[in-house]
Design a protein around this nucleic acid. Structure first.
Length: 473
DNA sequence: ATGTCC
């Protein structure tokens, strides 16, 4: 049987391009098409698509790529979503999975990570030597030098080239809109994980046979231990969404703009409120990149405590799956929104950072708890979808429904609790994160199969969880 | 996802 991995769905307001295998497609909630129909009513849109992990969100589905031409474009805070700049980071260590064979050692590592990375108090990561204003304005370039250690990339450079973008420039006047309290809270939250689906995970990797050449170029080794981080812009991005969202809502009401969904917000890029939003959105992208960088810094400190000063943790890559920005393709400027959608550029695309120009950059895709994550690379045929792939497994069940359905025993057994292969979790009570059990999510392997089948990307390495650090409310 | 309020 020939499986289809892509189809165009015609709706009254336009076409949504759906990248999903037949099985996943059949299981899609009709509400994702209602949402698409509303989103397609925003004027001048040139392209909209769904990834195989698409699911209903606020105003817009998570798993959406939505594109305008910059010259007559629109920005939608709803298509970006409220966790602006949320994304992934992977660091490579000089440990082999056998070094972490003992459950006791994995427990110790998790405990020490918690010492450097506050997970109970979400606002305890006070870095008094970091000026929040500097990192908000200059991204990673606003950090004191001590946070950019030597040997931080596989090529042992101190460069900040192993990120999607190390600094987002914007009109800084927009920052005057925020009260002191927002600055204070965000300073205290720097370097904290947050909760929900955010995590730090210790994983071991398996290289995909047909991508060994790329894996080698990236410094990946079979059985290598890696650190995967998933976090965003914390309350800074939340404040941006809230502040801009309420102003744009009022403007839309006054000007009679809108769709059937009052939670779907948008404005033409030329509107002053749209410009303020884009400026503040970029400030949140700076915060998010720095936040993940500082979380990695904390894990690195913990690693040195546990394994000694020879412990290394070099940056593979940092990239995001929630944002809107300008992007050039074949000389044309587009304004691209990705919400739960990850850019995966192929080799030689000019937007690749220099170290990844000849291979394409790593695209980092998290699975759900207890399941695999993936390090992928974009394919040239991904152009059809503006080089966008999935963001993870994709939720199929609400947090409350998951808590009703899944038992603690089922959750524990998916984490292999009590066996030698136990995926050690920091939370004393799994009950506090029961809504993150794998039963709340689609099967990530099926999602990845769809992405490959559609010709969007290839797997370079599969990452298997060994220990997970989560925040919880 | 988030902080805040019920």
């Amino acid at each position: 049987m020939n499986e289809t991995y892509y189809q165009q769905v015609q709706l009254p307001s336009g076409t949504v391009h759906v990248y999903a295998g037949d099985t996943l497609f059949k299981e899609l909630d009709y509400k994702v098409f209602e949402m698409a129909n509303n989103n397609l009513q925003i004027p001048n849109q040139v392209y909209m698509s769904y990834t195989p992990d698409v699911h209903v969100g606020v105003g817009t589905c998570i798993g959406t790529t939505a594109v305008w031409n910059t010259k007559d474009g629109y920005v939608s805070p709803s298509i970006v979503g409220s966790d602006i700049g949320c994304g992934m980071r992977v660091h490579l260590t000089n440990l082999h999975k056998d070094d972490l064979k003992e459950v006791k050692l994995r427990r110790k590592l998790v405990k020490v990570i918690e010492k450097y990375l506050p997970v109970e108090d979400h606002a305890r990561g006070y870095f008094s030597d970091i000026r929040l204003e500097h990192v908000i304005k200059k991204g990673l370039h606003g950090l004191p030098k001590k946070y950019i250690p030597d040997g931080y990339t596989p090529r042992k450079a101190t460069s900040l080239t192993h990120v999607e973008r190390s600094k987002f420039a914007f009109d800084e006047n927009a920052l005057n809109l925020f009260p002191e309290q927002v600055w204070h809270r965000s300073h205290r939250q720097l370097g904290t994980l947050g909760n929900g689906n955010h995590f730090v995970e210790i994983q071991s990797i398996e290289i995909a046979e047909d991508q060994r050449e790329i894996a080698e170029a990236w410094g990946l080794l079979d059985g290598q231990v890696v650190v995967m981080i998933h976090s965003g812009s914390r309350s800074w991005g939340g404040s941006v969404s809230q502040y801009c969202g309420s102003n744009i809502t009022k403007m839309m009401r006054a000007e009679g703009l809108g769709t059937a969904d009052p939670k779907l917000l948008f404005a033409p890029l030329t509107h002053p409120l749209a410009q303020t939003y884009v400026n503040l959105e970029y400030s949140a992208l700076n915060y998010a990149v720095v936040n993940r960088h500082l979380i990695a810094y904390a894990v690195r400190e913990a690693g040195k405590d546990v394994f000694g000063s020879k412990f290394e943790m070099t940056t593979l890559y940092d990239l995001m799956h929630n944002y809107a920005w300008e992007e050039e393709h074949e000389g044309q400027s587009f304004f691209i929104h990705r919400k739960g959608s990850t850019r995966a550029l192929p080799a030689n695309h000019p937007a690749n950072p220099e170290p990844y120009m000849s291979t394409g950059h790593p695209a980092l895709i998290p699975g759900s708890m207890g399941t695999a994550s993936y390090i992928m690379v974009g394919s040239p045929t991904g152009r059809a979808n503006f080089y966008s792939i999935c963001h993870g497994a994709g939720r199929i069940r609400s947090r409350s429904a998951t808590k009703k359905l899944v038992t603690l025993n089922e959750f524990s057994s998916s984490l292999k609790v009590g066996t030698d292969d136990e995926i050690v979790v920091n939370q004393r009570s799994l009950e506090s994160i029961l809504d993150e059990s794998p039963q709340a999510y689609k099967d990530v392997d099926q999602i990845i199969e769809s992405v490959i089948g559609a010709g969007l990307a290839q797997v370079v390495a599969k990452c298997k969880p060994m220990a997970t650090v989560k925040g919880a409310k």
